[in-house]
Design a protein around this nucleic acid. Structure first.
Lengths: 225, 225
DNA sequence: CTAATAATCAAACGTTCGTTGGAGTATGCG
DNA sequence: CGCATACTCCAACGAACGTTTGATTATTAG
């Protein structure tokens, strides 16, 4: 009786540990972060996480066995996606806990924002209101496919590699706020540094779509233009 | 430049993976679950998780290195506690995700509730309101020390091993709702089965204090009597 | 003081995990 | 058809992990 209780408990905790095992590898976490931006084929995931295709495939298999991602085959490609928003929320939660508890991580993030003035001094709600009014221009500097599968309201797609060619589209008299995949992504930082060099009033917004949605705010999925 | 970006990202994801590593072992998850009930010395943690003292010590060291628990020495004992409510919230979150995604876990939990009528057919808010009115009696069947360090409002302490002696304290004309450490704890199940055998109208409530608090509901820390 | 308790440390075991290389499977193209 | 692409499976390596054993450090009791 006492022993059967132990067996049940071992089984229950072991099941939760399957999720834990899935998120104990840095590369798997990075893949989850990438998949928060929308579904992608293995090849793209491997390239963006800078690992071999084989290794990406192996890690994705682990994530699939934990039912955190699922695959869809289309032509020669296998597209992976998260099994639900709960997985993205969990990624936001574990990253938040790590930021909260691990001083090393907080120090590393602070170093990324060493030019403090580059960080947007606005709350999510304020940004949303001012973007609605047209008081600020919100730029999504991720690749177009990620923009298409979900972006902040009133944001316009401005992939990092097109920024230099499309400077004329941007106002010089209004604040420009750039965001990308989230706090661990460096694309918006790069964009903001370049824009400020060119005389714009540019700020970085740390949220990605996953953080935005996890805090209960709306996300648009159809391109606005 | 591109390479330094990789180094930064590797560092960031590796930090988050420290949290993941801490929660990839079933025993460590069980220790976290136990510590959600309040601080405890190593010996008690080891006994309740049914592992050796040495092994418990080793696992607690891992958790300490992830800054999820901290220790306080008092006399011959070392008392461990969670470093904050965020850790308890995270435990609730990872367990919820596992319940959500892993069919094996859902099946095991359903088997625990095989007598469906034993589960409380009430929301948290409804239970709180009816307990306030005195329409139901809420029993905390955990050990007294855990009750003392935090319990549901209007609950009375009724440790499982004292239940048989104190049956006279319980009403036979009102529903009796018993809770314990949470969904993975079997104490409330045992209590409810016994009470129903004895002719009471007893129900199990799956939440523990951590679940209750994570959903934004109030927790009392001083014993009511 | 010595003896006993509570806990950690150090070493060692078998196991599992991350990663790589090679082979194998399905799909699309010419 | 044959070849290239996209991916998965299998085997193998070293590294890291979970667990146990024995020795070691604090603290209390006698």
């Amino acid at each position: 009786m006492e022993n059967s209780g132990r067996q049940v408990k071992d089984l229950l905790y072991a099941q939760v540990a399957r999720i834990g095992k899935a998120v104990c590898s840095p590369k798997r976490l990075e893949l989850i972060d990438l998949l928060c931006q929308g579904e992608k084929p293995v090849e793209r995931l491997a390239a963006e996480a800078q690992i071999s295709l084989k290794l990406a495939s192996a890690h994705l298999k682990e994530l699939r066995q934990a039912h955190m991602v699922e695959a869809r085959k289309e032509g020669k490609n296998v597209y992976y996606r998260l099994t639900g928003e709960a997985v993205a929320d969990f990624w936001v939660a574990i990253r938040s806990l790590a930021e909260d508890r691990l001083l090393d991580l907080r120090a590393a993030l602070a170093k990324l924002a060493e030019h403090a003035h580059e960080l947007t001094p606005m709350s999510r709600e304020e940004l949303l209101a001012r973007a609605k009014n047209g008081d600020v221009v919100v730029l999504d500097v991720r690749p177009p496919s990620e923009f298409a599968s979900g972006h902040l309201p009133y944001a316009q797609s401005m992939p990092l590699d097109q920024l230099k060619k499309r400077l004329a589209d941007l106002p010089r008299d209004k604040p420009v706020v750039a965001y990308c995949r989230g706090p661990f992504c460096l694309m918006s930082k790069e964009a903001v540094e370049y824009l400020n060099q060119q005389g714009f009033h540019a700020f970085r917004f740390e949220d990605g779509v996953a953080e935005w949605r996890a805090h209960g705010l709306p996300v648009e999925t159809a391109p606005p233009l």
